[in-house]
Each structure stands twice: as structure tokens, then as C-alpha cells.
Amino acid sequence: MDLPSALQKLSIYRSRNTRASQETFDKGLLVLKGNGLKKLGDEGWAFLEQLALAAIDVGRLDIADRCLQLLTEKFPGSPRVDCLNGIRKEVTESPEAALAYYNQLLEADPVNVAFWKRKISVLRRIGRIDEAVDELIELLDTFYTDVEGWLELADIYSSCHQYTSSLQSLSHVLLLAPQNPFYVLRFAETAYTAGDVPLAIKSFLNVIDMADSDEDAPIEQVPSGFQVRAWLGIKLCSRRLLQERRLPSPSQTPVPEHLQLIDELATERLKTVYAGRDKSDKEAHEILEWLSRG
């Protein structure tokens, strides 16, 4: 691979925030060896940061240290470089040492979100979940619009089986990013896990509603990606609701009308996905069997 295409790929990764560490590392090394740093000009510093993170990810600390050294020389005392240094410390030093480092940085600058988040992630990693949650809640109370933080909080709660709290965090995510169907899907699945089936089926339907609203004839399309997941969710919920209409709903969501029609629609949609597949496809076979049982 030649230098220009590597540079282009790297800049795409940078702008999309893709964490393809191994590829980034390979291409980054090519750039570093091919003396591409000078060619990049001011963009070179962002590239060094990217390469350092990727190198830490794939465990090539020598490269990471080289990038960090260059960055520290250029920007002494920059919070962004400090944060990178902290991540580097997390690899080789004990979590307590990293925590102390972040605490020291936060003391100097208590409102730096990057340090704060690193500290929370270290706390979570060493199992001090309650402290991590407390810190995260304080962070989100101050910086309400941080979607990443709310998602992390929801994730922590679901890892502790606190599905209702997780749903509450996700509801903030929905408020902040109402256009993203993936978050709605996550909300729906969390609701299903929390046992709130009426809320779950409504949310799954919302996902479908969001996903195909720009198509003219959705009936002719084969659902793909997360839509399949949403249809599976609808089918699961509708089957349970048809068996027992009075399932509890802590959020007092009414059970949707025309449940029978929804159930049929979900079955039909899922059949269009799986019926066309090979007979030897075990997954498709099982799902079709499961569908015919209902």
C-alpha cells in the first residue's frame, strides 16, 4: 500500500472516530517510516495521537512512546497529551497509579471531561462500580448533553441487572439523539429484558417506523441489519402478549391494538428474510421453525 492512500484512509478513520486499531497501526507505521509526518503538516499531530492510541490498543508500546514523546515535545502541558499519557500509564502501571494520576490532573482542572471520563473508566475496570456510577452521574448532571456518558451509564446499570435505571439513562439518550434508531433498538431490548413487554413492543415498532419512513414501498424490501432484530423483537413480544394480554408494564404503557395483525406482519417480514436462505443454513432453519410454532 502506498503512502497517499494510507494517509487518506487514516484521515477517514480520524473523522469517523473508527477504532480499527490494527489497520490504523499498520498504516500509521507505514506513514511514520515513509516520513509522511512532514507531509501532513499540522494534521500530523492529530495523526500522532491516533497512532499512539492504536499502538496502545495493539500493544506496541514502543511506537506509542515514540508518538507520545513527539507530542509532548510539541505541546508541553496540553491536557490532550496528558490524557494520552494517562492512557499509556493505564497499560503498564497499576490502576491505582493511573487513578492517582487522573485525580491529580482533575485537581488542577476539575472540569476537564476527558480526564473525568478516563477516571470513571478506570474505576469501572477495577470493580469500584458504585464510585464509577456516582462520578458518572455527577459528570452527566454537569454536562447533560454527553450521549456517550449516558450510554456508558446505561451499560453499567444493565451489567448490574438494574434494568429500570438503565432504561432511565437510555431515555436521556433518546432525548439527546432522537434520530438514531440504534438507540431506540437498545431501549426496546432493555425494556424487554426489564420485563416491560408492552413498552418493548412499542419501542420495537418505533424502530421499524424510523427505519423505513423514507422508503416508498417497504413491503417489497427485505429487512436487513437492525431491522431484522427489531422484527424479531416484535415477534417475541407479540407472541408473549397474545398468550397473556395482561402482562405487567411498570411504565404503564398500553398494549398496542391489532396485536394479531402485528404478529402476522412480523412473521411475514421475518419469513421474507429467512425463507430465501439455503436449506443448510441452520440459523434460518431454526428461526423458521420457531416462527411456524406460533
Binding site: K202, I208, D209, P218, I219, H258, L261, I262
Partner: peptide
Amino acid sequence: GKDVEQRVLRRYGK
């Protein structure tokens, strides 16, 4: 999501 089921059913011609 108040009457989302009706919207979805209508879109799919049910």
C-alpha cells in the same frame, strides 16, 4: 410511539 402500530401496519398495507 402512541399509535406507532397503526402507522407501521398502514405502511405495510395491513
